[in-house]
């Protein structure tokens, strides 16, 4: 009789991943222990003998690290593979499972980082920031509810799709249709981030040139606004991007450079927050 993992055990395994994927993180093993705890209920259900369990668990002691949200898909895929191995130990072995796992964690990490952490979260945060005007808690509550619902049900969906479809589920993500979807989502991400920058990052210059009678003949900020509103904000963002993407500077170094720029700007009167007690 073919062995089948019960729905209850799959759900337990998913919850173990949902909660514990990174709780015992170290630079050396990263998500390996989260993986072991998610596979344990499945292994215990599929194998009765202690040595079979030990043999199966040994597979998952290999190093694992990916983007944990989208990575639920990989855990689902291996749950399906473990079931196949329990039914046909000749067809699926430790190497098959670990080869697939190692092959998937890179692409899934790349897609997950840009799609979820780099696009989805900033878009929800951007909208939430818009709801926080004047110190309203609405934005934070909006983010908590929307993100957690999307993440929980999205991860659950990914896990069970992975279990049902195996590596076909991944083909969809990296395939041409998946790529088209990802590209269009990145358009939404780019536009919303642009709007967040323009709305929430005001950079203004205080530079005004006066003639001998004290009359202002050049108000730089006004001039810039008539060319392109928020010009300095755009300029500084491109500058930071250029330093990090083209000059490979670390974010901390860029921040330190901004401190220097701010100091020079204040000394020359280019920047003046205009605050007093």
């Amino acid at each position: 009789m073919a062995k089948k993992i019960s729905k209850k055990t799959l759900t337990r395994s998913f919850h173990h991943w949902f909660y514990g994927n990174l709780t015992c993180f170290s630079q050396e093993h990263m998500q390996t222990f989260g993986y072991l705890t998610s596979m344990l209920p499945i292994v215990e259900e599929l194998y009765d003998k202690k040595e079979d369990q030990a043999k199966a668990m040994h597979t998952y002691t290999a190093f694992f690290n990916t983007e944990p949200q989208l990575g639920a898909l990989i855990v689902g895929v291996t749950a399906g593979l473990e079931e196949a191995r329990a039914n046909d130990p000749e067809g699926v072995d430790e190497e098959t499972i670990n080869g697939l796992r190692a092959g998937l964690m890179g692409p899934i990490a790349g897609i997950g980082d840009s799609l979820i952490v780099g696009t989805l979260i900033p878009v929800i945060l951007g909208i939430a920031l818009g709801l926080s005007t004047g110190g309203s808690p609405l934005g934070a509550i909006f983010y908590i509810v929307v993100w957690n619902l999307l993440a929980y049900f999205g991860m659950r969906f990914a896990y069970f799709k992975g279990y049902e479809l195996g590596d076909k589920a991944v083909e969809f993500l990296v395939g041409p249709k998946g790529q088209a979807i990802r590209k269009s989502i990145s358009i939404i991400g780019g536009m919303v981030i642009g709007a967040v920058a323009a709305t929430w990052v005001p950079i203004n210059t205080a530079l005004k040139l006066r003639n001998s009678s004290g009359k202002v003949y050049l108000d730089l900020q006004n001039q810039l606004n008539s060319v392109y509103p928020s010009f300095l904000t755009a300029l500084f963002i491109i500058f930071c991007w250029w330093l990090m993407a083209k000059k490979n500077m670390s974010p901390i170094k860029v921040m330190l450079l901004l401190v220097v720029i701010a100091l020079i700007g204040v000394l020359t009167g280019f920047f003046d927050p205009g605050l007093k007690y």
């Binding site: 840009s114 780099g118 990145s186 780019g190 920058a197 929430w200 701010a262 920047f271 605050l275």
Partner: peptide
């Protein structure tokens, strides 16, 4: 000068965060 610089740095810092995001996309 120190406090003025601190406030100015505060205004400039989000550019780094947004630039990191741009680097992703």
């Amino acid at each position: 000068i120190p406090m003025k610089t601190l406030f100015t740095v505060g205004a400039l810092l989000p550019c780094v965060g947004i630039a990191i995001l741009l680097k992703q996309i």
